[in-house]
């Protein structure tokens, strides 16, 4: 048998050989380079880390792009029919799916690195690293720099959950557009549901996925948006959802007949 890295390499090729991917990367690079310029013009007297924290408002972009790639990963093979030729190789379905998952994970890291890297590069040319007069001041314990890095890390965790969900829909429904649509719809409904079954009032609300996503709520408050959860609690809840998503994904992929 050849080695598993060959499989991951294959999946990477399937991502990066596509025009679509480069359009996404291009858009992302543009935003990361141009936003600091815009911020520089509209906000006088702010420092580097304030600018970077503002740039983070656009972190939904790398997340959405990762969701798009995750949604296509399995569903695209089904809709093209290439899944047949992929699965008749001496590899178990689990390993093939794992290679796909890992390639999406690597893509997420790549887009976030590109986004933060280019943003940081541009911002450091335009702004002072020293704190400036108009820097935003929250109830922060650490510096603005720390605030940025923690926010970025938390967004990566959120993105991980989102794309794992999209990946699951991609495998279960075998439809790229359905997987994207469902993930996005759930994001909205999720917020609504958390509003209705508020964790402050109902115990069960605390265990909702969407009450615990957006870990950056713990940067400003130890008990989060609702005052009833902690970061440890949220991480534990997210871990449970994560494991359930992945278990379901792999189980369905292993068991289902391929009739495409």
């Amino acid at each position: 048998m050849s080695n598993f890295f060959g499989l991951i390499h294959n999946e990477n090729i399937k991502i990066y050989a596509r025009m679509r991917t480069w359009v996404m990367l291009g858009v992302l690079a543009l935003i990361a380079l141009l936003m600091p310029v815009l911020i520089h013009f509209v906000s006088e007297g702010i420092g580097l880390w304030s600018a970077m924290n503002t740039l983070l408002l656009f972190s939904f972009l790398p997340t959405v792009f990762t969701i798009a790639v995750a949604a296509d990963s399995a569903a695209g093979e089904f809709s093209r029919g290439t899944i047949k030729l992929l699965l008749i190789r001496p590899w178990s379905r689990s390993k093939i799916l794992l290679s796909k998952y890992i390639s999406v994970l690597l893509f997420m890291l790549a887009v976030y690195a590109l986004f933060a890297g280019l943003g940081l590069l541009m911002s450091s040319l335009l702004f002072d690293t020293e704190s400036a007069a108009n820097d935003m001041i929250g109830q922060l314990t650490g510096s603005l720099g720390d605030y940025f890095w923690w926010s970025l890390l938390y967004r990566l965790v959120d993105c991980l959950i989102y794309f794992t969900m999209a990946f699951m829909f991609s495998v279960v429904f075998r439809s790229n557009s359905l997987a994207v649509a469902l993930t996005i719809i759930l994001l909205f409904i999720g917020d609504l549901v958390t509003l209705l079954i508020s964790p402050e009032r109902y115990e069960i609300g605390r265990y909702l996925l969407f009450a615990n996503l957006d870990l950056s709520q713990y940067i400003s408050s130890e008990t989060g948006n609702y005052g009833v959860t902690t970061i440890g609690f949220s991480l534990a809840v997210l871990a449970v959802y994560y494991v359930i998503f992945l278990a379901l994904t792999f189980w369905v992929f292993r068991k289902r007949d391929v009739a495409a």
Partner: peptide, 26 residues
């Protein structure tokens, strides 16, 4: 095997398609 129509990755060249399958074996 070929199962029904042999669908391939349209955005890859024929050679890259073959490489995909070659990489999955030693």
């Amino acid at each position: 095997a070929i199962v029904e129509n042999p669908e391939m990755y349209g955005y890859l060249s024929g050679y890259q398609n073959l490489l995909q399958y070659a990489r999955m074996r030693s």
